[in-house]
Nucleic acid binder design. Structure first.
Lengths: 232, 232
DNA sequence: GCTCTCCCTTGATCGAAGTCAAAACTTCCA
DNA sequence: TGGAAGTTTTGACTTCGATCAAGGGAGAGC
């Protein structure tokens, strides 16, 4: 593991405040692995043996039931995922696959639990991380239950523009089929939703979306901080 | 606050393992209040000043956005709710209203955070509680994205029967309009879903549902432990 | 016991979303 | 460069769910 990777992991909110010794113990038990795109890292219903951290690349969290499948979230560097299953020593509720070539840090669950018991600062960070993750899923659930597909897409675009320091256009950074699953619709429906947004100030062309009328888009999307704002 | 109430609160997983002194400090800062049915206890977007514990009665957690409203969960005695907002000292993402006459214990957020910092056993319980809550919402999100309304209802009935030590019938313990919101559909649609389940082994009559063909109902519902099992 | 109100149900209709099929476009690799 | 495979788009159709409207039923209060 390269020194700059170590310091990036260390800079994560989850690991930032813990003692040096705890962090080092954690790292020594862990290993870093490279994966090509499309590799399933985690299968739901298996026991949670590792906490995973995306160092480089990208990971899609998804879940299947009754023959259907959906995407829960995307994880970009640097972030940890499936902390909850690790802590409760239970099975994963979600599966994970790489969407591109990735480097993943794998920390044994038992080590995480031991570090938590040994280092109150780390436990406090775990609390904060879990609370954030919980609120994030609640927002997704609200979005899913309170909005139509086109509205979810419009709000997703507005949020993406904010993240890309919005100059009136955005570059979509995931495949559209994955985006469709993320937003809770079929690829066909996503296409139609994009077509529908043309009348509301967003023109898509390939992976690029031009905001031709930002006010109109916002009026259609009705963004709500309690659903769309990542920090609230 | 009556002694038996105190011991019931103390028996909650969240408070069970903490030190006596921490628990007493927490209780001294808190107060217990009675509310008639239909009172809004918490409004989303307000700052999280109290951790609430339902001692008696019942509470509905709901959320609104863009003129629509939905129910996130029901809280029955004895359980705490909206822990995440309290810990992060942020605004509530959900509103809460009593569905019947209720007694609610209100613990100041600052006291909760202080207790957590002072008592590692309590912080560990908070971690466990948050992890459970997180997994519970993920299951709801999966149910919402992967199933039709009738399927969600069928699985909800099967789960309720388990909770009521299933003798081939269940008593619905919430108003159907609230159940509809909980399951992500309109009251009209819930009625039709019940009608549809008649052909799959579940006959509703008022608040009582007879399981005329349990196997058929399960075949239709396709229950999945990773969505429906409260303890996985 | 009666009425009023609220909840639940049923029916008709509309809009949103899934499915099936095929064409257009990309990307990647031989 | 020329496929080949996969992705995206479009179209036709079906299903699911929301909306509007009206009727039936159960409980609360007089």
């Amino acid at each position: 593991m390269r020194p700059e990777d170590v310091s990036e992991v260390r800079a994560l909110a989850l690991f930032r405040d813990m003692r040096d010794t705890t962090f080092e113990t954690l790292l020594q038990a862990s290993f870093l692995q490279r994966f090509p795109p499309g590799v399933v890292l985690i299968r739901e219903n298996e026991s949670a043996d590792f906490l995973h951290v995306v160092i480089e690349g990208g990971v899609e969290m998804f879940a299947a039931s009754g023959g259907r499948e959906t995407t829960i979230s995307f994880e970009r560097p640097v972030s940890a995922f499936i902390l909850a299953a690790v802590l409760k020593d239970q099975v994963y509720l979600q599966s994970a696959r790489t969407v591109e070539a990735s480097r993943i840090l794998m920390i044994p669950s038992a080590s995480v639990r031991r570090a938590m018991d040994a280092d109150p600062a780390f436990m406090a960070a775990v609390v904060a991380e879990l609370a954030t993750a919980y609120r994030s899923v609640v927002k997704d659930l609200k979005s899913q239950k309170l909005r139509t597909g086109a509205e979810r897409l419009a709000n997703w675009l507005l949020r993406l523009e904010r993240e890309q320091n919005g100059q009136g256009h955005v570059e979509i950074d995931v495949e559209k089929r994955q985006l469709a699953a993320r937003l809770g619709m079929t690829p066909e429906n996503l296409s139609r939703a994009f077509a529908a947004l043309k009348a509301h100030g967003a023109a898509v062309r390939g992976m690029r979306v031009e905001f031709t009328d930002r006010a109109a888009l916002a009026a259609f999307a009705q963004p709500d901080p309690l659903v769309d704002d990542e920090r609230s």
